[in-house]
Protein backbone atom coordinates (compact mmCIF):
# COMPACT_ATOMS: atom_id res chain seq x y z
CA UNK A 1 0.00 0.00 0.00
CA UNK A 2 2.70 2.49 -0.88
CA UNK A 3 3.90 4.74 -3.65
CA UNK A 4 7.58 5.36 -4.24
CA UNK A 5 8.95 8.68 -5.46
CA UNK A 6 11.18 8.12 -8.50
CA UNK A 7 11.37 11.86 -9.36
CA UNK A 8 10.37 14.48 -6.79
CA UNK A 9 9.43 17.37 -9.13
CA UNK A 10 10.37 20.91 -8.10
CA UNK A 11 8.71 20.93 -4.67
CA UNK A 12 6.04 18.30 -4.07
CA UNK A 13 4.44 18.30 -0.63
CA UNK A 14 1.70 16.44 1.22
CA UNK A 15 -1.20 18.85 1.88
CA UNK A 16 -4.75 18.75 3.19
CA UNK A 17 -7.03 21.57 4.38
CA UNK A 18 -4.50 22.68 6.97
CA UNK A 19 -4.00 23.07 10.74
CA UNK A 20 -5.89 26.04 12.14
CA UNK A 21 -5.45 27.01 15.79
CA UNK A 22 -1.69 27.57 16.19
CA UNK A 23 -1.09 30.85 14.35
CA UNK A 24 -0.64 32.62 17.71
CA UNK A 25 2.52 30.50 18.14
CA UNK A 26 3.77 31.21 14.63
CA UNK A 27 2.57 27.93 13.13
CA UNK A 28 0.58 28.78 10.00
CA UNK A 29 -2.44 26.94 8.67
CA UNK A 30 -0.59 25.48 5.64
CA UNK A 31 -2.58 23.06 3.44
CA UNK A 32 -3.27 23.22 -0.29
CA UNK A 33 -2.78 26.70 -1.77
CA UNK A 34 -5.68 26.07 -4.18
CA UNK A 35 -8.18 24.46 -1.82
CA UNK A 36 -10.94 24.37 -4.45
CA UNK A 37 -8.78 22.15 -6.69
CA UNK A 38 -7.69 20.06 -3.69
CA UNK A 39 -11.30 19.37 -2.70
CA UNK A 40 -12.20 18.56 -6.32
CA UNK A 41 -9.34 16.05 -6.64
CA UNK A 42 -10.46 14.25 -3.49
CA UNK A 43 -14.11 14.16 -4.58
CA UNK A 44 -13.10 12.60 -7.91
CA UNK A 45 -11.51 9.61 -6.18
CA UNK A 46 -14.19 9.16 -3.51
CA UNK A 47 -12.14 10.64 -0.64
CA UNK A 48 -13.25 13.04 2.04
CA UNK A 49 -12.73 16.55 0.65
CA UNK A 50 -9.98 17.22 3.17
CA UNK A 51 -7.95 14.02 2.66
CA UNK A 52 -4.21 14.43 2.21
CA UNK A 53 -3.05 14.78 -1.40
CA UNK A 54 0.18 15.75 -3.14
CA UNK A 55 0.64 19.37 -4.23
CA UNK A 56 3.13 19.63 -7.10
CA UNK A 57 4.27 23.09 -8.13
CA UNK A 58 5.36 23.92 -11.73
CA UNK A 59 6.76 20.42 -12.36
CA UNK A 60 5.19 17.06 -11.58
CA UNK A 61 6.81 14.16 -9.73
CA UNK A 62 7.12 10.57 -10.96
CA UNK A 63 5.53 8.01 -8.66
CA UNK A 64 5.75 4.22 -8.79
CA UNK A 65 2.67 2.43 -7.45
CA UNK A 66 2.91 -0.87 -5.55
CA UNK A 67 -0.88 -1.29 -5.46
CA UNK A 68 -3.76 -0.69 -7.85
CA UNK A 69 -5.20 2.76 -7.21
CA UNK A 70 -7.64 5.36 -8.48
CA UNK A 71 -6.05 8.76 -9.06
CA UNK A 72 -7.21 12.24 -10.10
CA UNK A 73 -5.21 15.35 -10.96
CA UNK A 74 -6.75 18.83 -10.75
CA UNK A 75 -5.51 22.40 -10.58
CA UNK A 76 -2.69 23.28 -12.99
CA UNK A 77 -2.77 21.86 -16.53
CA UNK A 78 0.05 19.36 -16.26
CA UNK A 79 -1.08 16.29 -18.21
CA UNK A 80 -0.67 13.05 -16.23
CA UNK A 81 0.82 9.95 -17.85
CA UNK A 82 0.52 6.33 -16.73
CA UNK A 83 3.55 4.47 -18.14
CA UNK A 84 3.71 7.23 -20.81
CA UNK A 85 0.02 6.91 -21.75
CA UNK A 86 -1.65 10.32 -21.46
CA UNK A 87 -4.56 10.79 -19.06
CA UNK A 88 -6.94 13.72 -18.64
CA UNK A 89 -6.82 16.21 -15.79
CA UNK A 90 -9.99 16.71 -13.66
CA UNK A 91 -10.90 13.07 -14.45
CA UNK A 92 -10.28 9.99 -12.28
CA UNK A 93 -8.23 7.16 -13.79
CA UNK A 94 -6.74 3.84 -12.70
CA UNK A 95 -3.08 3.15 -12.01
CA UNK A 96 -2.05 -0.50 -11.65
CA UNK A 97 0.56 -1.88 -9.29
CA UNK A 98 3.96 -1.55 -10.95
CA UNK A 99 2.96 1.38 -13.16
CA UNK A 100 4.51 4.83 -12.99
CA UNK A 101 2.51 8.06 -12.83
CA UNK A 102 4.39 11.01 -14.29
CA UNK A 103 3.58 14.38 -15.87
CA UNK A 104 4.04 16.41 -19.06
CA UNK A 105 5.49 19.91 -18.94
CA UNK A 106 3.22 22.51 -17.31
CA UNK A 107 0.81 24.15 -19.77
CA UNK A 108 -1.08 26.56 -17.51
CA UNK A 109 -1.65 27.28 -13.83
CA UNK A 110 0.99 26.55 -11.20
CA UNK A 111 -0.04 23.80 -8.76
CA UNK A 112 -1.42 20.36 -9.55
CA UNK A 113 -3.27 18.35 -6.90
CA UNK A 114 -2.75 14.60 -7.09
CA UNK A 115 -5.39 12.74 -5.10
CA UNK A 116 -5.17 8.99 -4.62
CA UNK A 117 -8.16 7.00 -3.36
CA UNK A 118 -7.63 6.41 0.35
CA UNK A 119 -5.49 9.54 0.74
CA UNK A 120 -1.81 9.88 1.63
CA UNK A 121 -1.37 8.33 5.05
CA UNK A 122 1.36 10.31 6.78
CA UNK A 123 1.08 10.85 10.57
CA UNK A 124 -1.12 13.67 11.81
CA UNK A 125 0.79 16.62 13.29
CA UNK A 126 -1.34 19.06 15.33
CA UNK A 127 -4.47 17.76 13.64
CA UNK A 128 -3.30 17.90 10.03
CA UNK A 129 -1.15 16.02 7.52
CA UNK A 130 -0.09 19.25 5.78
CA UNK A 131 3.58 20.02 5.29
CA UNK A 132 4.96 23.21 6.85
CA UNK A 133 8.48 23.12 5.43
CA UNK A 134 9.84 26.20 7.22
CA UNK A 135 9.04 24.63 10.60
CA UNK A 136 9.88 21.05 9.53
CA UNK A 137 6.37 20.02 10.60
CA UNK A 138 3.81 17.56 9.20
CA UNK A 139 3.68 15.92 5.78
CA UNK A 140 6.44 13.45 4.99
CA UNK A 141 9.21 14.17 7.52
CA UNK A 142 8.28 17.87 7.52
CA UNK A 143 9.69 18.51 4.05
CA UNK A 144 9.14 18.30 0.28
CA UNK A 145 9.50 14.84 -1.26
CA UNK A 146 12.87 13.52 -2.45
CA UNK A 147 13.82 10.52 -4.58
CA UNK A 148 13.07 7.14 -2.98
CA UNK A 149 10.63 8.47 -0.39
CA UNK A 150 7.86 5.96 0.19
CA UNK A 151 4.36 7.12 1.08
CA UNK A 152 1.65 4.93 2.59
CA UNK A 153 -1.91 5.11 1.33
CA UNK A 154 -5.11 4.93 3.36
CA UNK A 155 -7.96 2.54 2.68
CA UNK A 156 -9.80 3.55 -0.50
CA UNK A 157 -13.55 4.15 -0.20
CA UNK A 158 -16.08 2.01 -2.04
CA UNK A 159 -16.99 4.91 -4.34
CA UNK A 160 -13.56 5.12 -5.96
CA UNK A 161 -13.74 4.48 -9.71
CA UNK A 162 -12.17 5.74 -12.90
CA UNK A 163 -13.84 7.95 -15.49
CA UNK A 164 -15.43 10.46 -13.11
CA UNK A 165 -15.11 13.96 -14.60
CA UNK A 166 -15.54 17.58 -13.59
CA UNK A 167 -16.83 19.86 -16.35
CA UNK A 168 -14.70 22.91 -17.28
CA UNK A 169 -17.44 25.32 -16.16
CA UNK A 170 -17.08 23.97 -12.62
CA UNK A 171 -13.34 24.72 -12.43
CA UNK A 172 -11.69 27.96 -11.35
CA UNK A 173 -8.57 29.54 -12.80
CA UNK A 174 -7.13 33.07 -12.77
CA UNK A 175 -7.77 35.23 -15.84
CA UNK A 176 -5.18 37.21 -17.80
CA UNK A 177 -4.42 39.61 -16.29
CA UNK A 178 -5.22 37.85 -13.04
CA UNK A 179 -7.57 39.88 -10.86
CA UNK A 180 -7.23 39.68 -7.10
CA UNK A 181 -9.93 41.39 -5.08
CA UNK A 182 -8.59 43.25 -2.05
CA UNK A 183 -10.33 44.90 0.88
CA UNK A 184 -8.31 48.04 1.75
CA UNK A 185 -7.66 48.46 5.46
CA UNK A 186 -5.15 47.57 8.21
CA UNK A 187 -2.54 50.33 7.55
CA UNK A 188 -4.02 51.66 4.29
CA UNK A 189 -3.94 55.15 5.87
CA UNK A 190 -0.14 55.11 5.74
CA UNK A 191 -0.03 55.77 1.97
CA UNK A 192 -1.08 58.91 0.13
CA UNK A 193 -4.38 59.03 -1.80
CA UNK A 194 -2.46 59.16 -5.08
CA UNK A 195 -0.43 56.07 -4.17
CA UNK A 196 -3.58 54.24 -3.12
CA UNK A 197 -5.12 54.90 -6.54
CA UNK A 198 -1.90 53.96 -8.35
CA UNK A 199 -1.79 50.66 -6.52
CA UNK A 200 -5.15 49.62 -7.97
CA UNK A 201 -4.48 51.22 -11.40
CA UNK A 202 -1.11 49.56 -11.99
CA UNK A 203 -0.56 46.14 -13.51
CA UNK A 204 1.85 44.06 -11.46
CA UNK A 205 3.82 40.94 -12.34
CA UNK A 206 4.35 37.86 -10.17
CA UNK A 207 8.00 37.74 -9.04
CA UNK A 208 9.82 34.41 -9.57
CA UNK A 209 10.52 34.07 -5.83
CA UNK A 210 6.77 33.79 -5.02
CA UNK A 211 6.17 30.68 -2.91
CA UNK A 212 3.87 29.10 -0.32
CA UNK A 213 4.80 31.73 2.29
CA UNK A 214 3.94 34.67 0.10
CA UNK A 215 3.47 35.88 -3.45
CA UNK A 216 5.65 38.84 -4.33
CA UNK A 217 4.72 41.23 -7.15
CA UNK A 218 6.70 43.89 -8.97
CA UNK A 219 6.29 46.39 -11.76
CA UNK A 220 3.92 48.96 -10.24
CA UNK A 221 4.79 52.46 -9.04
CA UNK A 222 6.53 52.94 -5.68
CA UNK A 223 4.16 53.93 -2.89
CA UNK A 224 4.50 57.33 -1.21
CA UNK A 225 3.85 57.50 2.51
CA UNK A 226 1.96 60.04 4.56
CA UNK A 227 4.53 61.96 6.64
CA UNK A 228 4.66 61.11 10.32
CA UNK A 229 7.07 60.78 13.18
CA UNK A 230 7.59 57.01 13.49
CA UNK A 231 5.97 55.61 16.67
CA UNK A 232 8.24 54.24 19.42
CA UNK A 233 9.31 50.67 18.60
CA UNK A 234 8.25 50.82 14.95
CA UNK A 235 11.61 51.24 13.25
CA UNK A 236 12.77 54.11 11.11
CA UNK A 237 11.49 53.21 7.63
CA UNK A 238 8.08 54.76 6.84
CA UNK A 239 6.84 51.28 5.82
CA UNK A 240 7.59 49.96 9.34
CA UNK A 241 5.03 49.43 12.11
CA UNK A 242 5.40 48.04 15.62
CA UNK A 243 5.56 44.32 14.82
CA UNK A 244 2.02 43.00 14.59
CA UNK A 245 0.03 40.03 13.30
CA UNK A 246 -0.32 39.40 9.59
CA UNK A 247 -3.69 38.16 8.29
CA UNK A 248 -3.65 35.45 5.60
CA UNK A 249 -3.93 37.29 2.30
CA UNK A 250 -2.64 40.55 3.78
CA UNK A 251 -0.67 42.73 1.37
CA UNK A 252 2.53 44.14 2.84
CA UNK A 253 4.78 46.46 0.88
CA UNK A 254 8.28 46.62 2.43
CA UNK A 255 9.91 49.93 1.53
CA UNK A 256 6.82 50.76 -0.54
CA UNK A 257 8.12 48.93 -3.60
CA UNK A 258 7.05 45.29 -3.99
CA UNK A 259 3.74 44.03 -2.56
CA UNK A 260 3.78 40.58 -0.95
CA UNK A 261 0.51 38.68 -0.43
CA UNK A 262 0.93 36.22 2.43
CA UNK A 263 -0.41 32.74 1.71
CA UNK A 264 -0.97 29.38 3.45
CA UNK A 265 2.54 29.10 5.00
CA UNK A 266 2.47 32.78 6.05
CA UNK A 267 4.83 34.26 8.57
CA UNK A 268 2.44 35.14 11.39
CA UNK A 269 3.63 38.66 12.01
CA UNK A 270 6.29 41.26 11.52
CA UNK A 271 7.12 44.91 11.19
CA UNK A 272 5.80 45.91 7.76
CA UNK A 273 2.61 47.90 7.19
CA UNK A 274 -0.17 46.26 5.19
CA UNK A 275 -2.40 47.92 2.60
CA UNK A 276 -5.28 45.51 2.98
CA UNK A 277 -6.17 41.88 2.48
CA UNK A 278 -6.94 39.73 -0.56
CA UNK A 279 -10.37 38.25 0.10
CA UNK A 280 -10.77 34.57 0.97
CA UNK A 281 -12.57 33.80 -2.32
CA UNK A 282 -9.46 34.72 -4.33
CA UNK A 283 -6.75 33.03 -2.26
CA UNK A 284 -7.07 29.82 -4.33
CA UNK A 285 -6.39 31.79 -7.54
CA UNK A 286 -3.04 33.03 -6.22
CA UNK A 287 -1.92 29.41 -5.88
CA UNK A 288 -2.27 29.04 -9.66
CA UNK A 289 -0.22 32.10 -10.68
CA UNK A 290 3.00 31.52 -12.59
CA UNK A 291 5.95 33.90 -12.37
CA UNK A 292 5.61 37.01 -14.55
CA UNK A 293 1.81 36.68 -14.75
CA UNK A 294 0.21 40.12 -15.12
CA UNK A 295 -1.96 40.84 -12.07
CA UNK A 296 -4.33 43.60 -11.04
CA UNK A 297 -5.57 44.29 -7.55
CA UNK A 298 -9.30 45.13 -7.54
CA UNK A 299 -10.80 47.15 -4.70
CA UNK A 300 -13.80 45.55 -2.96
CA UNK A 301 -15.98 46.37 0.01
CA UNK A 302 -16.61 43.93 2.87
CA UNK A 303 -20.07 43.29 1.35
CA UNK A 304 -18.39 42.54 -1.98
CA UNK A 305 -16.01 40.14 -0.22
CA UNK A 306 -18.90 38.29 1.43
CA UNK A 307 -20.76 38.06 -1.88
CA UNK A 308 -17.67 36.62 -3.59
CA UNK A 309 -17.32 34.17 -0.71
CA UNK A 310 -20.87 32.91 -1.26
CA UNK A 311 -20.22 32.68 -5.00
CA UNK A 312 -17.27 30.41 -4.41
CA UNK A 313 -19.25 28.28 -1.96
CA UNK A 314 -22.08 27.97 -4.50
CA UNK A 315 -19.65 26.79 -7.17
CA UNK A 316 -18.31 24.16 -4.78
CA UNK A 317 -21.89 23.04 -4.04
CA UNK A 318 -22.55 22.74 -7.79
CA UNK A 319 -19.39 20.69 -8.17
CA UNK A 320 -20.43 18.35 -5.35
CA UNK A 321 -23.91 17.98 -6.85
CA UNK A 322 -22.45 17.15 -10.26
CA UNK A 323 -20.62 14.17 -8.77
CA UNK A 324 -23.53 12.76 -6.75
Amino acid sequence: MTIRVTQPGLSTTVQDLGRPGYFHLGIPISGGMDRFALRAANLLVGNDEGAAVLEAVFMGPALEFTVDAIVAVTGAEMTPKVDDQLRETWTSFAVKAGQILSFEILKSGARAYIAIAGGIDVPMALGSRSTYSLGGLGGHEGRALVVDDELSLGQAGLGAKSGIHIAPKLRRSPGNPAELRMLPGLYWHRVTDVSGRNFFDDTWQVAPEADRIGYRFRGGRKLEFVDREQPFGAGSDPSNIVDGCYPYGSVQVPGGTEPIVLHRDAVSGGGYFMLGTVISADMDLIGQLQPHTATRFIEVTLEGAMKARRGRQNLLDELRASLD
Binding site: A234, G244, Y248, I279, S280, A281, A305
Partner: peptide, 29 residues
Protein backbone atom coordinates in the same frame (compact mmCIF):
# COMPACT_ATOMS: atom_id res chain seq x y z
CA UNK B 1 -10.40 48.10 14.49
CA UNK B 2 -9.89 47.08 10.87
CA UNK B 3 -11.07 44.08 8.87
CA UNK B 4 -8.38 41.95 7.26
CA UNK B 5 -10.47 40.66 4.37
CA UNK B 6 -13.61 38.68 5.23
CA UNK B 7 -11.96 36.36 7.79
CA UNK B 8 -9.82 38.56 10.08
CA UNK B 9 -10.25 41.50 12.36
CA UNK B 10 -7.11 43.40 13.26
CA UNK B 11 -7.12 45.44 16.46
CA UNK B 12 -4.43 48.04 17.02
CA UNK B 13 -4.38 48.97 20.72
CA UNK B 14 -1.73 51.62 20.15
CA UNK B 15 0.50 52.79 17.31
CA UNK B 16 3.53 52.77 19.58
CA UNK B 17 4.96 50.01 21.74
CA UNK B 18 4.48 50.14 25.47
CA UNK B 19 3.91 47.66 28.26
CA UNK B 20 0.42 49.16 28.75
CA UNK B 21 -0.50 48.51 25.10
CA UNK B 22 0.83 44.97 25.28
CA UNK B 23 -1.04 44.33 28.51
CA UNK B 24 -4.31 45.57 27.07
CA UNK B 25 -3.83 43.45 23.95
CA UNK B 26 -3.06 40.38 26.06
CA UNK B 27 -6.01 40.88 28.41
CA UNK B 28 -8.40 41.40 25.50
CA UNK B 29 -7.21 38.23 23.75
Amino acid sequence: YSFGGDEHIFVEVDEQMSLEAFFKSLSMT
